[in-house]
Nucleic acid binder design. Structure first.
Lengths: 147, 147
DNA sequence: ACGAACTGTTCGCGGCGCGAAGTAAAAGTA
DNA sequence: TACTTTTACTTCGCGCCGCGAACAGTTCGT
């Protein structure tokens, strides 16, 4: 018999909030270790898969384009990123990693992954696959729309 | 037989990153709907359980106390929070919600919880308890120490 | 050809987070 | 008691972040 004083859904929601905080903390620590701001680290990690335009970044990061301009500016000033013009569309530009940017991005990404894997290491291995599947499932649903 | 091309641990780590981003997004949207910054919302939610001193908040939010001073200042200026002096220790103060602050805190907290529960609603109910337990387990471990 | 739609930028604003330095009170020590 | 040390919090200066409004250039649709 299962106690339902605190419904599982609510427990999950609360855990998700705490989890988000913990992950953010990891991100923040790792960023600092590599002399990045968390936002810069996020940007770099996103660019690992290849160049992306401003609008694409805006969507991926949930940022207004005006906010992004500054973020890219500062990253560019630090030599982590470069604006390459798009040959098809003369308005657009592709943001890409520099050599240094790619190096730092890989380091930061690996460090975050390593620390998060440490977390899961304490979990019973037989639960890993189910957990992975469940989380993927959770993320596959569209975010609830704002009013 | 389990495919290990992409180890479950890595898949979990990646999912956690995306999940954190999603939760943060929810927090950010809800905050905006209630005319709060995400940081203010986080502060208010933390105070729902009762007054906390600056040092306690600092630890709970992973913020330097100097950062906190400003955050509480702005929240106080908006009438959401008040500094009450501690009768035992004249250096310390307890930060507590005002009536308005408690109202907004409850609204924001409920809104976040509701949206996150929406997320989990699509999951097979028979997995709920296991997921809740697993996430709690994950969070019970100490965060990996920085170098 | 021309207006609508889109891409990215600049600007001004307030919020945020840090570290260094400062004040005041409490706790420990001689 | 008189002292140092520790603790609680604030102030200040700095750079980063995120928004919306206003802008310029480019492409698209008709």
């Amino acid at each position: 018999m299962v106690t339902t004083a605190e419904p599982a859904q609510r427990r999950i929601a609360q855990a998700l909030v705490r989890l988000a905080h913990a992950v953010q903390q990891v991100f923040s620590e790792v960023s600092r270790e590599h002399e990045l701001t968390p936002q810069q680290a996020q940007l770099l990690c996103l660019l690992i898969d290849g160049p992306v335009g401003m609008t694409g970044l805006s969507r991926a990061l949930h940022l207004e384009r005006s906010s992004l301009s500054g973020l890219v500016d500062r990253a560019e000033r630090r030599g982590l990123v470069a604006r390459a013009r798009d040959s098809r569309d003369r308005r657009a530009c592709r943001i890409e990693l520099t050599g240094e940017g790619a190096r730092v991005a890989a380091l930061a990404h690996d460090a975050v992954t390593a620390r998060l894997e440490t977390l899961t290491a304490g979990l019973p291995p037989e639960h890993h696959d189910l957990l992975a599947a469940t989380l993927d499932d959770l993320l596959s649903r569209p975010a609830p729309p704002g009013p």
